[in-house]
Design a protein around this nucleic acid. Structure first.
Lengths: 198, 198, 198, 198
DNA sequence: CATGAATGAGTATTCATTCAT
DNA sequence: GATGAATGAATACTCATTCAT
């Protein structure tokens, strides 16, 4: 326990500068193969270290997942925030929010994918934390729906669940390149906005 | 213990057929914990046999999954078929199809859940078979959308993807008891049919 | 226990007419992959029956091996016998014996190969029987060496071990087609007969 | 707890190196029971560790075999090298080479035995490596034959195959104690060198 | 003669984790 | 901060064998 050498335990309590490397590696695998199909060895290998070394940074695989998941939520929220802040037509705003959500989910980074792909009960011990993080984001998303001028008695909850479900499920069939998140978002929102009954 | 029903030990030599038992057990676990989180021990235990005994019936865990998955698709198709066959208002028909789909997925049996929950690439060796099965069903579902009278240039593919996505994703948040598949289907279809833009 | 139907329990105590089929299948695998690497399933499959059915014919895998091994020894002895019976030049006779031995071992059938390939202690329970069978043949082979007119004090035992070793080991490197057992036998015997020291 | 002997925890960080222990254990079993009849449990047990722990050192049973086999070839080559390097009578040299070969094979260590006992295709994945190793040694052995002054048109290849076969097959019947490798080698070489035809 | 169904013990291998250094 | 070495429990799967039918 060196009491002097370290410049200042308060300002730099723990450097841990390879931490982002680990998070990136983990996010990559979790997004790609899922939590349960990823081993600590996979992650360590990709981060250029040995499995045991991961435990200096995270107490368990589950805690590592929480960290990745939290970062994923943070990024989706950050991606959606500008769209949400915009003034103007609420339908247009919803479309932009959806586009940002989709982009974060499908293309921008592994972190976003993790949030949609990993089911909280894959990691029972921390399931509650994951659910809380997910809920946190869904409240954000709700605001975009809440701002919509809708006929009275419209079921806004169903609207939100439907839209979010459609968006999230797209991870299942979406293939990069054929269509942009932006245009997909437009299609989906149009289907809701425009009357379909001829 | 029906004392009469059994035809005769000669005609029915002894097909205890614990095979459906195995399938049920597997379906239960796959639906509940996912494919990768289920062990052959789990399944064997629930079926009242030893792990090795499973291999008399299925050559591998993956083939067992295919059997469960196929049965799942069969059941969803069977559930949806009557609704699809109905004459009358196409929107009404779509609603009934969605209700049947949701019921099969959320309540009726584990088999339906497996089809939605298990990702084909969890079992790489048979992934193609699973995809084929899933596609087979989706073609069935498409018919309900195809029958809709829609304004020209409506994007029917997007409509199908959106609806199916919303339906399937419901597995994530749906909790039995609060709301019936029937009523949920009605809500979703209404949101599409009725104009939302005031 | 039908007392009448069977023609005559004494003359045909047990038909067992698929037995040769089983032996052939077993010989094939034992020769090819070795005893330990062959499963009863392999054999049953090749014989067109189920694994359990083999136990009607043989009490255990080990006993099946004994049967195959015995048949192998029988065949090698039968192949060598005519050459051994010949009159005339003893060196010529030895060459013919070696040629017959090699042919039985390398080309004629799987049974011969089994005798050379399978080590008695691969099947501990019956090891002694296998050794006895092998010894039985070696005594036969010895006669060909015993008949040789050799300088006094020649070590006939070493000669037999050397020749038999060279012959048996050929299974390791011999590839059908390049050279006949006949010509290989001639080469080996010549090396012994002719003086090499110039 | 030796307080002095250990040079310094810094220079010799802690290379317990139980690896040779594992190799020895594996060599012992492979030589004794054969590759396929040896389990990783056997080896681990003899090395004083748990089965899983072996995989820290070797990626698979097959790779472990390669390591043992390579060491075996190395040892036989090393044993034969001095004899091969000798000047003087080529027949005498051949005899010494054979004696060294036999000693390595029959008495000196399990490693040598493994090379002769284990058939490359017992471990299909690495079979090619094993064959390459074996060939490597056989080229060494060939030199001893190549140095022999022989009548023109003598078949040197057959001579090498015959001698090596006789030597290697001796593993089958040789029992320590009765006769030394040295004397056995002399017998074999004499049989070739001296004219047998009276 | 043969099968259908199962057993129980064994196989190689994987994995999250630990901990002294 | 990280490693080398190991643990212990789990995993999918295999195999010789059994036995009622």
């Amino acid at each position: 326990m060196p009491a002097v050498a370290r410049p200042s335990p308060a300002t730099a309590p723990r450097a841990d500068n390879r931490l982002p490397l680990i998070l990136d590696a983990a996010a990559g695998f979790f997004a790609d193969k899922g939590y349960g199909y990823t081993s600590m060895r996979d992650i360590a290998g990709a981060a250029g270290m040995l499995p045991g070394s991961l435990y200096y940074h995270f107490a368990s695989k589950e805690e590592l997942l929480v960290a990745v998941y939290a970062e994923g939520v943070r990024r989706i929220k950050a991606a959606v925030a500008p769209a949400l802040a915009r003034d103007g037509d609420p339908w247009e705003r919803l479309e932009q929010v959806c586009a940002a959500h989709l982009a974060a989910l499908l293309e921008d980074s592994d972190y976003g994918q993790v949030v949609v792909r990993v089911r909280p009960d894959d990691a029972p011990v921390v399931a509650a934390q994951l659910v809380a993080l997910r809920d946190e984001y869904e409240r954000t998303f709700s605001q975009a729906v809440a701002g919509l001028p809708l006929p009275p008695r419209t079921d806004r909850r169903a609207l939100r669940l439907m839209l979010l479900g459609a968006l999230n499920w797209s991870q299942t069939w979406y293939r990069t390149g054929k269509e942009s998140p932006q245009s997909l978002a437009r299609r989906f929102v149009r289907l809701l906005r425009d009357p379909l009954e001829s």
